[in-house]
Simulated assay, not measured.
Amino acid sequence: MDSMLRSRTATRLPLDRPARSLTRRGRALSVALALGALLASGATLTLAAPAVAAAGDVKCPSTDCALIAPAAGSPVAIAPDNAGAVYLAYSGGDLLKLALATGALTTVTTGLGNLRGVAVADGNAYITAFDGTLQQVTLATGSRRTLAAGLPSLFGVARVGTTTYVTDGNGEIVAVPDGGTPRVVATGLGFSYGLAFDKAGLAYTADMMTGRILQTNVSTGTTRVLASRPDVAMSR
């Protein structure tokens, strides 16, 4: 897979880390998030016919989904490592690893803050928090370091080369180069929980308030609307 597509994010959910009893909405949404992350990563999912049963009323279209549904709970964000695992971030500050082959769920680290987004690249997780902090977690050891702090609330995150890009609560994309100073590279994007890049280096966000899907050139800051669905925009 192209290096520009190595990190993916997913949408925020209201619940925290896995519990034995999950709400119907929480179970269904966590399955949708996990499948979305897998598909975005380029993973091949084998569809089952008929659908594979999972937890409660969730009907899964694949064996991967059936493993994720009962295990994942309701993370705020999910990112695949393209090596057989997905990493789950929870609003209570936990980062967990889910092995797709077995469904085993293990803790990478805890106490990361009020998390909102996660991306995985080169053996590290890049994690955004509501308090405006961007952290890097080494997946093998769970050790962490702060890449940026004091920013507006952060949500989506993607890693491209030696730069981490994040979306914030002000409708901006912020670039955080390794060892450098964070800088705003695009504005006026609305409210997006997710951020992804294509192989040409163009960024993609979804404005939940207006139903727009946007493409942004982070080198120039120019943005264009690729699609608009105001009928599905979030209520203010």
Score class of each variant (00 low, 15 high):
residue 181 T to G: 02
residue 218 V to T: 11
residue 185 V to H: 11
residue 217 N to R: 12
residue 202 L to E: 03
residue 156 G to E: 07
residue 197 F to W: 08
residue 214 L to F: 03
residue 191 F to H: 10
residue 188 G to C: 09
residue 196 A to T: 13
residue 147 L to N: 05
residue 183 R to N: 13
residue 221 G to I: 15
residue 231 D to Q: 11
residue 164 T to P: 04
residue 172 E to L: 14
residue 177 P to T: 02
residue 136 Q to W: 08
residue 200 A to F: 11
residue 163 T to H: 04
residue 225 V to M: 11
residue 136 Q to C: 03
residue 215 Q to F: 02
residue 153 S to V: 11
residue 137 V to S: 08
residue 193 Y to P: 10
residue 144 R to D: 09
residue 215 Q to P: 09
residue 219 S to H: 14
residue 136 Q to D: 10
residue 232 V to F: 13
residue 165 Y to M: 00
residue 164 T to S: 06
residue 216 T to D: 08
residue 166 V to S: 04
residue 212 R to E: 02
residue 158 A to P: 01
residue 168 D to Q: 07
residue 150 G to F: 15
residue 171 G to T: 05
residue 226 L to I: 10
residue 205 T to W: 05
residue 140 A to G: 14
residue 223 T to L: 15
residue 197 F to A: 05
residue 140 A to P: 10
residue 167 T to M: 09
residue 232 V to M: 06
residue 216 T to P: 01
residue 184 V to K: 06
residue 161 G to Y: 01
residue 196 A to C: 07
residue 146 T to P: 07
residue 159 R to M: 00
residue 153 S to G: 15
residue 168 D to T: 09
residue 199 K to L: 10
residue 193 Y to K: 12
residue 152 P to D: 12
residue 213 I to L: 13
residue 173 I to K: 01
residue 176 V to E: 01
residue 193 Y to C: 08
residue 180 G to A: 07
residue 172 E to P: 08
residue 166 V to E: 06
residue 158 A to F: 05
residue 221 G to E: 08
residue 150 G to S: 13
residue 139 L to Q: 05
residue 166 V to L: 07
residue 197 F to P: 00
residue 191 F to S: 06
residue 155 F to K: 09
residue 175 A to M: 04
residue 228 S to R: 02
residue 157 V to R: 07
residue 168 D to H: 06
residue 138 T to L: 08
residue 204 Y to C: 03
residue 145 R to P: 03
residue 182 P to C: 07
residue 168 D to P: 05
residue 187 T to K: 13
residue 212 R to Q: 05
residue 224 R to K: 15
residue 185 V to T: 07
residue 152 P to V: 15
residue 176 V to D: 00
residue 145 R to E: 07
residue 157 V to N: 00
residue 149 A to D: 10
residue 221 G to F: 14
residue 174 V to W: 07
residue 232 V to P: 03
residue 160 V to K: 00
residue 160 V to L: 02
residue 137 V to F: 09
residue 212 R to F: 04
residue 156 G to F: 06
residue 184 V to R: 08
residue 148 A to R: 02
residue 160 V to G: 01
residue 148 A to S: 12
residue 137 V to K: 02
residue 227 A to S: 15
residue 223 T to M: 13
residue 157 V to Y: 01
residue 223 T to I: 11
residue 187 T to I: 15
residue 142 G to I: 13
residue 144 R to F: 08
residue 164 T to G: 05
residue 154 L to S: 07
residue 155 F to D: 11
residue 221 G to K: 15
residue 218 V to L: 11
residue 212 R to G: 01
residue 211 G to V: 01
residue 182 P to F: 04
residue 210 T to L: 01
residue 161 G to H: 00
residue 194 G to Q: 09
residue 169 G to D: 13
residue 188 G to E: 12
residue 195 L to Q: 02
residue 174 V to E: 08
residue 175 A to G: 09
residue 163 T to A: 06
residue 190 G to S: 08
residue 139 L to D: 07
residue 220 T to L: 12
residue 178 D to V: 12
residue 209 M to H: 07
residue 143 S to K: 15
residue 192 S to E: 02
residue 170 N to G: 15
residue 226 L to V: 03
residue 192 S to H: 04
residue 142 G to N: 14
residue 226 L to P: 06
residue 181 T to A: 09
residue 227 A to Q: 10
residue 195 L to T: 02
residue 145 R to F: 11
residue 215 Q to E: 14
residue 151 L to S: 08
residue 136 Q to M: 08
residue 227 A to G: 14
residue 154 L to W: 06
residue 232 V to W: 04
residue 148 A to V: 05
residue 157 V to G: 03
